[in-house]
Design a protein around this nucleic acid. Structure first.
Lengths: 202, 202
DNA sequence: TAGCGCATGTACCAAATGGTACATTTCTCC
DNA sequence: GGAGAAATGTACCATTTGGTACATGCGCTA
């Protein structure tokens, strides 16, 4: 059951969609790439929309897993954690996943049906753990929320920049500019020596 | 010549595309909405791709004009200028244009043909004037570039957030958090009293 | 007014798309 | 090993798509 035919098809579809995007997808092209017929896709997923819905759902799940993984080991200072996260996200191998993420994001903003559930989670999923980190570092609620939201925006904005320009150096410099000039200033009171807060998300 | 039939069609198409997005556009639906036939669209623009190319080009032009308009009157302190720009961008009436912007952005990242020229400009167009402003306020080149890039990312990231969540209050609070905690700190030396630097972009 | 070029409407086409009917194979469980 | 269900392949269908042929209208200039 773990790798039922449907599951195998979905996994292969995720690979394909990560490479080729979701916008111009047709069942026949996908099926050909997967070595099957479009008949099977309809059989297992009901319809094209059904397939896309599951693709988006799976994408969400992977992202959630990725989030908790990135934010997990918080023993190091938040600023170092943030640096590490950006380095991970800025790796070239991540680009296809991120392109897909922003493509689905944009389609959701345009109201495409199979993305209906996405908009509620696309910010909140990342915001919650970030706010929690900020609270743990002694930030008052309002500031914790604003700071988390800002960090998320910085990360996504710089990722958009990186994907468009390919300027790893420039975008990383901007992130470093943010981390060094901004992060140390927000949470003056905290644990022992000045660990401050955490930013980051995709 | 100013409002040739082609020009009128393009203008009406911009309206339509701003409302309905560009991803699921078909010539027939568009033509029906414009009160003409898809025959005319092909006649004037050569093909669907030709039409989309001109739509993207026009969108770029409008954005460039909007940029220079927003960054024009720089008599006020950069932080107030930044606030004003965000208020403009966050207005609900701007949402459709911004949704279209991010949709085209995402399609460009996926390599759709009619967007080829976009990726080179989509960051640079906004970056240049921002860097110029930072330089005018006495920032060294490297810092001016990083700071401009950061401000652009913050704005676009928060716009993505706002479009998804509709949380005008929360995103504006995050922007204000950025402006008050970050902006005043970057350029300590400057003109007279502490005007510092400018951030902003869409 | 005659003529010419731009613009437009109607009808059509081939290709591709999502989806389905039906037959066949493969797997699973008793 | 046999029966029933799950899975798959082949062929087909109606619809929609971008694009075109052809005829008609409109506006300008001589």
């Amino acid at each position: 059951m773990a790798d039922s035919p449907k599951e195998r098809l979905l996994a292969a579809t995720m690979d394909y969609v990560t490479k080729h995007g979701i916008g111009e997808l047709t069942l026949r092209q996908l099926a050909a790439a997967l070595g099957t017929s479009h008949r099977m896709l309809v059989y297992h997923f009901g319809s094209k929309e059904g397939l896309l819905t599951e693709v988006v759902r799976r994408s969400e799940a992977e992202q959630r897993q990725f989030t908790s993984q990135l934010l997990a080991d918080s023993d190091q200072p938040p600023i170092d954690q943030a640096r590490r996260i950006w380095q991970q996200l800025a790796q070239p191998e991540m680009a296809p996943r991120e392109r897909l993420f922003f493509e689905v994001y944009a389609q959701a903003l345009q109201g495409r049906p199979h993305t209906r559930a996405l908009l509620d989670e696309i910010v909140e999923t990342w915001l919650e753990p970030l706010i929690a980190i900020n609270r743990q570092n002694g930030m008052p609620p309002a500031e914790a929320a604003a700071s988390a939201r800002l960090g998320l925006a910085v990360t996504r904005g710089l990722l958009l920049d990186l994907l468009a320009t390919g300027d790893h150096k420039g975008t990383s410099a901007a992130m470093e500019h943010f981390l060094t000039n901004y992060l140390p200033l927000v949470a003056p009171v905290s644990k022992s020596r000045g660990t401050q807060k955490g930013k980051r998300k995709r």
